[in-house]
């Protein structure tokens, strides 16, 4: 029996040491000493790690030249597609997908914006829409922090397309697409 006592004690000792190490308060890898995006940072301004840029900061990819008066990029189908996508995300809640100004948020009580299909706005230069997106207008807030300059031009171009489409006649449609329109599968027409 005494022959076994020594290894037994050794084993018990080893076990208790392992357990006591495991019980130590180890740093948790899932919560490391670094700030994740927007993580709270006590004692920083507003206790947040995401700091506001100092006044006058310029983004690395910012365009510093004056804003051009006309569309600064070629008018392509891709640009209009991009414009449609961005318009439907950021503008359609109020302006509606058709540009009529009867969007869902307007239906819930937001003051109705003017339709894009009025004579005044049909004559307005694209730069007007660019500026309104950048700076807001009336009760409309500025969207400059959500819509990048290139996207503002794309939206402006798409608004023009909406205006033209509203006042277009069947004669404006290319002959091959006209047949498909008459058959009623207009939604399948790809630009």
């Amino acid at each position: 029996m005494t022959r076994l006592a020594r290894p037994c004690i050794a084993a018990l000792l080893a076990l208790s040491m392992t357990l006591s190490i495991a019980a130590c308060d180890q740093p948790h890898m899932e919560d490391q000493a670094k700030y994740e995006t927007f993580e709270a940072a006590p004692e920083w301004a507003d206790d947040q790690s995401a700091l506001t840029p100092v006044p006058g900061s310029v983004a690395r990819d910012a365009r510093l030249g004056p804003v051009p008066d006309e569309l600064p990029m070629p008018l392509t189908a891709e640009l209009l597609e991009r414009g449609r996508e961005r318009f439907n995300i950021y503008c359609s809640p109020c302006h509606a997908r058709t540009g009529s100004g009867h969007g869902m948020v307007v239906q819930r009580g937001f003051p109705q914006p003017p339709t894009f299909h009025s004579e005044r706005l049909r004559q307005a230069p694209l730069r007007h829409f660019y500026d309104v997106i950048s700076d807001g207008f009336g009760v409309m807030y500025a969207y400059r922090d959500r819509v990048a300059p290139e996207d503002r031009w794309a939206i402006a171009a798409y608004i023009r397309a909406l205006q033209l489409a509203r006042h277009a006649s069947l004669a404006d449609v290319p002959a091959d697409v006209r047949q498909r329109l008459k058959r009623g599968d207009a939604t399948k027409v790809t630009p």
Binding site: F38, P93, G109, F110, P111, D145, R146
Partner: peptide, 29 residues
Amino acid sequence: CRYCHSGVETSDFAGIPPTLTCMTCHSQE
């Protein structure tokens, strides 16, 4: 989704909208 989480296509974090985004509508609603 991108109306509020506007950074989702351009950054790792989708973005929690700033208070101004809420107020875009709730200044009137």
